[in-house]
Design a protein around this nucleic acid. Structure first.
Lengths: 346, 346
DNA sequence: GTGAAAGCGCTAACAT
DNA sequence: ATGTTAGCGCTTTCAC
């Protein structure tokens, strides 16, 4: 694993290392002839500067760390694609970390990112995180952080999210317009802001349309299918069974979907169902799942732009930017009653 | 972003940096009293050794690079979980790269991994890769590489795969036993070994059971849903429509699934369908998809073990290990005719 | 038991 | 236009 260094070039060419260095980086104060010889030899020997040495010198790595709960969740996979899109263009490499919804793991990830001198951090917090000290500590030391999707209000830094309230409102409104009388909500963990915002949107729509708000029609689940399946079974067992469900995420909606099918009920007639995120898999379910589409790729792009900006212009103590993106409701068969044509995007 | 260095400790304690260094790493030749003072101060000041400096010194990063086509593909997401499982336990951090099935991108990834001094490479090659020079070059320089899933035969190094032949054989045999007479195969790109092996398994089963092998019942698709959808439409338009399809992957099977439904045909009666990989989503389709399950997590674990072994015992010029894992057929409704009970794992 | 010095690969003053 | 020196943070001879 012998690699060629700047020293090797210097020796071969009978020049000093600084001359080589300058030639390589195209400094103007170098003999054009010398420059050519250096470049040529470097090429021939496949010289590559050692980025580790560069990092030590500049104390920056050109890496940005991204922490997501799970890469297996297509939503995050797409966000990451958006992040990579702008990071790559700006010369940064993105290093992906998974918290697996585990607080301890998240803390470890943050430490690793900070200690390994990543240039900044993009993060969507884990569901089990209730204490934000690990973020706060490095934020106070001036380490650039941008939150996305599952943001943390306690820390004053840029963040990117979608208009969860409005998305939830539109979904609920749609269910009302489909003639649902008893609309339930399968929510996410209450300490996550997105859960609360979606819950508020749901409530606001019911209120605006003069529908009763029943607390026992709101059940909480973790943001996964199994947990939602269990929660929905409980909902369906109630004497006054709901005829419409707004799920706080698509993974939750899939759990609802299974529970409904399992109970021998049909969508949308017995129960109309709407999810949140519009993952690719939504269209594959039977019946296909209506869902509030989030601009995941754009979210990634925006978060990366804000972070890179923060890295390059450290703390002008300007106020933090909250970029709130728009959602759009994609109606499919799981919620569309009657004979109207189904909007199909596949 | 001021961080505390070994020098700071030295100054505070009126000791030399070498003493600090020794105390920190518990060298035995240090005064027990001094050692205590150092450790305590380090603790108090939250001292963390600069890993970049360590890397420069040792020319190893404790990072291993992993290249997969897409993290959004749950199969790879699970393999990565397996990799992280053993890497983490061995003190390595895994850095994920996506080729997005793009050759150029893969080359860039390999360069980055090599130049940034990662300790080794785990890779499942992109579909568009036909030239393996980028791997060969670094392999010849002694850089540790292990291939998994989509392996490269041209390079003599460890690799981990599943018994694609047997998996395909079992799937096809199952279709035959379900009474299918005209069994088609939607294959993957022919230059990928997994595609060819699965194709061979399919052919062998037909042969063993005395079924005719018709070349026009084999169509190739990329390993994605859209491409498979198109290919399957072609298949269904044939005068002698197949009554069974073995798909070379689950993503392909989903495309088949859509095409079949779209044509107004039913599974399993009109056409029985079997996929490959048994992704979580297979069970969610309607009807649920039968599939050849791959031990993805175990594949990741094994690949990581082999790589770490290679890193720690560089090239004893021992022969390369090919670890071939077993598959198992998961039968669901998409292929199970008659009244038998469906195995349901959800 | 502890310190001084060299060096990992590179760049950036500061010479000349 | 090119060479010399110092230093990024750390470990490791080699001295004493």
């Amino acid at each position: 694993m012998k690699t060629v260094t700047i020293k090797d070039l210097a020796r071969s060419l009978n020049l000093s290392t600084s001359t080589i260095s300058r030639a390589l980086r195209g400094s103007s104060e170098i003999g054009v002839e010398t420059k050519k010889r250096v470049l040529e030899l470097a090429q021939r020997l496949d010289y590559n500067p050692n980025p580790v040495a560069l990092s030590l010198l500049s104390s920056q790595t050109n890496d940005i760390g991204v922490i997501v709960p799970e890469i297996a969740n297509p939503f995050f996979a797409i966000v990451i694609a958006g992040i990579e899109d702008v990071a790559f263009a700006q010369g940064y490499h993105v290093v992906i970390y998974q918290s697996h919804e585990d607080y301890e793991r998240e803390v470890l990830n943050v430490k690793h990112i900070y200690n390994r001198r990543k240039d900044g951090l993009l993060v969507s917090v884990s569901t089990s995180t209730k204490d934000y000290a690990h973020f706060k500590t490095i934020h106070e030391r001036g380490f650039p952080i941008v939150f996305f999707d599952r943001i943390c209000e306690e820390i004053d830094t840029h963040n990117v999210s979608v208009d969860d309230f409005e998305g939830a409102y539109k979904a609920t409104e749609h269910l009302i317009k489909q003639g649902c009388e008893r609309i339930a909500h399968v929510s996410g963990p209450a300490h996550l802001l997105i859960s609360r915002r979606r819950l508020h949107g749901y409530r606001a729509a019911l209120l605006d349309y003069g529908r009763p708000i029943q607390d026992d029609w709101v059940v909480a689940a973790a943001y996964n299918t199994t947990s939602a399946l269990v929660a929905t079974r409980g909902l369906l067992a109630k004497p006054e069974r709901p005829d419409g469900i707004f799920a706080s995420s698509d993974n939750i909606a899939i759990g609802c979907h299974s529970a409904i099918t399992e109970a021998g009920l049909t969508m949308p007639d017995d129960i109309a169902l709407v999810g949140f995120s519009d993952l690719p898999m939504a269209a594959l379910l039977n019946p296909p799942l209506s869902s509030v589409a989030q601009p995941a790729f754009e979210m990634g792009r925006s978060a990366a732009e804000l972070l890179i900006n923060l890295i390059r212009n450290p703390r002008e103590h300007s106020t933090s930017i909250s970029n709130v993106l728009k959602t759009s409701l994609v109606v499919r068969k799981s919620s569309l009653r009657g004979t109207a044509v189904v909007k199909n995007d596949e």
